[in-house]
Computed example of a mutant assay.
Amino acid sequence: KKLKQLMEKQVIKQHKTVWQSDLRNQHQGATSWLAMVDIDHFKKVNDNYGHVCGDEVLLLLAQKMRQFFRSSDLLFRFGGEEFVMVFEPTDYDSIHKKLAEFMDLVRGTHFPFVKKLTISVGMSRISPYDFPITVLENADKALYYAKENGRDKLCFYEELIAS
């Protein structure tokens, strides 16, 4: 329910930005986005080093997200080692670049005990006509595809459907 309210707020804000601005051209192609982020092989972290270490990894990753992304972007823990992020309106190239940079940051971060940590990301565009559950499911399908095809990947649902 909370996600639905937040997504609706983002979509309303998006339309105000696009239609009430004198600089409409700047915002063409801008849309809100939802990302599902999953830590690759997180079960191994818990199994090998214990849940206290796993919790440290989750906390450090959440701190990195909070520092890296805009304060207006919304961040939630979703399940065990998954996070959901809702991004303010931006274009595809900008969000792709930002997520790729974040994935690089994670690869280069020293986590407690864990030599190398990667994440997989599934992205979905938020359309004013979608139900929040549909957007979540689409991002989840893209995440599943990333994990099934080698992990440490960023996949966009709309691209997967197009191909």
Rank of each mutant, 00 (worst) to 15 (best):
L3C: 04
K4W: 02
Q5G: 10
K9S: 14
Q10N: 11
I12D: 03
I12M: 04
Q14N: 13
Q14H: 10
H15D: 12
T17F: 03
T17H: 03
T17Q: 09
V18E: 13
W19T: 10
W19M: 09
S21W: 09
S21F: 09
D22F: 05
L23R: 11
R24D: 06
N25W: 07
N25Y: 08
N25C: 13
Q26V: 09
Q28C: 08
S32T: 15
W33P: 14
A35C: 11
M36R: 02
M36F: 07
V37M: 03
V37N: 01
D38P: 07
D38G: 12
I39L: 09
H41T: 12
K44W: 03
V45Y: 01
V45T: 11
V45W: 00
D47S: 12
D47P: 09
D47F: 07
Y49A: 10
Y49M: 06
C53W: 01
G54S: 10
G54C: 09
E56K: 12
L58D: 13
Q63T: 09
K64A: 13
M65F: 05
M65D: 06
R66P: 00
R66V: 07
R66Y: 11
S72A: 11
S72E: 15
D73V: 04
L74H: 11
L75V: 03
F76V: 04
F76C: 12
F76K: 02
G79C: 12
G79T: 15
G80I: 08
G80M: 06
E81Q: 05
E81P: 07
E82D: 09
F83Y: 09
V86N: 01
P89C: 10
T90C: 07
T90Q: 14
D93H: 13
I95A: 04
I95M: 04
I95E: 03
I95N: 05
H96A: 15
K97M: 08
K97L: 10
K97S: 13
L99F: 08
A100P: 05
A100E: 12
E101C: 12
M103Q: 14
L105F: 02
L105E: 14
V106T: 07
V106Q: 01
R107P: 10
G108M: 11
G108D: 15
G108T: 10
F111G: 07
V114E: 06
L117T: 10
L117M: 14
L117Q: 03
I119C: 02
I119M: 00
I119P: 06
M123H: 02
R125S: 07
R125M: 05
R125L: 05
R125G: 11
I126L: 08
S127Y: 06
S127P: 04
P128N: 13
P128R: 07
P128W: 05
Y129N: 15
F131Q: 15
F131A: 15
P132D: 15
P132Q: 12
T134V: 04
V135T: 15
V135M: 01
E137A: 13
D140Y: 02
D140P: 15
K141N: 13
L143F: 04
L143T: 01
Y144N: 14
Y145H: 11
Y145I: 00
Y145S: 03
E148I: 08
E148P: 14
G150F: 02
R151H: 06
D152K: 00
D152A: 05
K153V: 00
L154E: 02
Y157S: 12
Y157T: 02
Y157G: 11
E158H: 08
E158C: 15
E159Q: 12
L160T: 02
I161A: 13
S163G: 12
S163R: 05
S163D: 12
